[in-house]
Structures are given as C-alpha cells and as structure tokens.
C-alpha cells in the first residue's frame, strides 16, 4: 500500500479500525498521519453542506410547476431530439457536432474555386439565354404622362427586371446642366443622355 492508496483507504474507511499494515504505515510517518487527518477533516467539513436545506415551499412550487407542464400538450420532435441529445446523451451531442463540422468542411472545401478541378467545357452545349430587357419608348410630347406608365411598370415587374425607358426627343445642341429630369409632379429621376 503506497501513500496515495493509504489516504484513499483512510478516507473511505474513516471511523473504522484500520488494518495493521495501514496502522504501521501511519505510525512510521507522522507527516502522513497529519495529512490523512487533514483530508478526513476536509471531507467532514464538506459533508456539513448536507444541512443546507431548501425552504419547504420550494418543493410544493416545483411540484405545481412540473405537474402543470407535464399535463400540457406533449412537446414536438425537435424539442424531444434536443432533450435526447443535450440531457440524456451530451457526449453523443458533442461527437455529432464534431462529425457534422468535419462533414461540412469536407463538403465545402473541395468545391471551393481554389481547389475544385475545372469542369471540361462542352462546346456543343447551348449558351445560356439571358432574358431580353423590357423597353418602353416614350415620346417627348408624352413626358407629362410618363408617371402613370412608370407606376404601372413598378407594379408589373419584379426587382431587377425593371423596364428600360427610352425618351425620344428632337435633337438639340444644348446639353442639360444636370443629368436628371422631372417626370410628372414631384418625381425626379436620374437620366443618361445618348446622342
């Protein structure tokens, strides 16, 4: 029996008569004897915590709350799965999370542009056809009436598919000082002038 084993034995059998071998070891080494006495004293001190007791009402409160909750609708499968993982099998939860991380990493990195092999080009494959933009032509004489047209276009076309509006005008050598234009009452839009 070494020192550690003796200490463990004394702690587990405190208050009992020790076997002769243990008694002899302790008598030979007063420092060890004192150390064992300290460990037993600490164990006794800690065990005093069992006298810390909850208020009587605490149990009734708990019973009421638990009773109310278990009589409600059964919880959903997501919650049950969470309980199974986090409460009943936390070690499995950590392993699963680690596996999931490895799997995601393995899936994502080979496909990243830096590492993925270049796909062979199929010269016979038809080119992707982009949708034609919608063009709306408006005469200069109709400028005052463009607002309803724009409002209708806003409603009819989803984002990024807004129509391009052309305003046809008589040619002039005067450039506007500010590249925007008022269309209808209070509506100002930026414009590009093409000649």
């Amino acid at each position: 029996m070494n020192e550690s084993e003796l200490k463990v034995y004394c702690l587990e059998h405190a208050g009992e008569t020790l076997p002769p071998e243990a008694q002899a070891l302790l008598q030979r080494d007063p420092a060890l004897q004192a150390d064992v006495a300290r460990l037993v004293a600490v164990r006794n001190l800690i065990s005093l915590k069992r006298y810390e007791q909850p208020a009587d009402i605490a149990m009734e409160r708990c019973l009421r709350a638990v009773s109310q909750q278990i009589r409600q609708e059964p919880e959903g499968w997501v919650s049950r799965l969470r309980t199974w993982f986090t409460i009943e099998h936390p070690a499995l939860a950590y392993s699963t999370a680690a596996l999931a991380l490895v799997a995601v990493t393995a899936l994502v990195f080979p496909r990243s542009p830096a590492t993925a092999p270049l796909a062979a080009l199929d010269e016979n494959a038809p080119a992707e056809v982009l949708p034609e933009p919608v063009l709306l032509a408006v005469e200069e004489s109709d400028v005052a009436d463009i607002a309803p047209t724009m409002a209708a276009a806003e409603a009819a076309f989803p984002n990024f598919d807004k129509p391009i509006i052309f305003l046809r005008s008589e040619s002039t050598n005067l450039q506007p000082s500010v590249p925007r234009m008022q269309i209808g009452p209070g509506q100002v839009v930026p414009v590009n002038f093409e000649y």
Partner: peptide, 19 residues
Amino acid sequence: NKEDAEDLIQDVFVKAYDA
C-alpha cells in the same frame, strides 16, 4: 445557488418525463 437549483429541478423533472 438556490434560485438556479429551483429552476433547474423543474427542467430536469419535465425533461425526464418527456424522456
């Protein structure tokens, strides 16, 4: 912490019932 213990014990018994 007695407040933590009171919250936790409800949770433990409800989860145990579900499981």
